[in-house]
Amino acid sequence: MIGFIVRRLAQALVVMAAIALISFLMFRYVGDPVAVMAREDASVTERQELREKLGLDRPVVVQFVDFIGRVVQGDLGISYRNQRPVADLIKERLPATLELVMMATLLSLAIGIPLGVITAVNRTGWLPTLVQSVSLVGISVPTFVTGIMLILVFAVTLRWLPSFGRGDTVQIGWWTTGLLTISGLKALILPSLTLALYQMTLIMRLVRAEMIEVLSSDYVRFARARGLPARMIHYKLALKNALMPVITITGMQIGGLIAFAVVTETVFQWPGLGLLFIQAVSFADVPVMAAYLLLVGLLFVVLNALVDIAYLVLDPRLRTRAS
């Protein structure tokens, strides 16, 4: 087992190194850093000095090692557009995205799990058919269309909820939160619902499949034979055992949600990491793009490795296969 973990971690390191290399190549070769950072009227010698000051005249390998060293210390360069350290920009935007993703995850679990149980327990009738058809239409509706329709109904027509921004926020240390004010909570509803819909279908299908399997097991049949109430069998006995894969998948999906938040944040002008990234893409702000790639890449590599290792620890059957 130790061997497997070491190999899995080594593999994660290789992937991370590849991501860092791509990020470095973008940073260094996409666009000319000197042309962007120098004054318009800088002379040739001034440009040369800046080039040396930035270390751009040294061998590429040395520059790459330097780049890694700076990244590890939290120095992600200066944004071309804002002329501010990229690390500061990310720190400012991170709370908004994390609160959005957290709320979306809670919503998708709160709605997806009961729907999955209900459709697994009553496999015929109008409700499961309805849920099934809605989820088929659901995967054909892109996130941004869902968001726009929600805005059209709840913000433009009914005027119940705001359509953009975070509302009022409260500062706690370097973290800004919208969870403590009424307007902040109201602003969170539509974006988190939009982001949650994408994951809700997945959770519902997963719970349904797991529940159907668990419901046909011996202990559930035994509980039925003993005459335990159906409610208790479904929610106390069966659901508990069906939830394990749901938790793993939900954990794995958090990375996907953060990446997917790019679209939701654009629709609702939510001031998070996704909006920062999309503005960087539109304005060719390479340092921000490279930093976002590094950050999200790290998140994905770590989550994937953790999930693989967790499976190994939790499921003894895999241990013999791995070794």
Binding site: G256, A284, M289, L293, F300
Partner: peptide, 22 residues
């Protein structure tokens, strides 16, 4: 494997951003 573990939209955005700069 590595490409598949990242969301399509993210990679597409990066390619598009790099193309815009170059």
């Amino acid at each position: 494997d590595v490409i598949l573990s990242f969301p399509t939209i993210l990679i597409a955005l990066l390619i598009s951003g790099v193309a815009r700069t170059l």
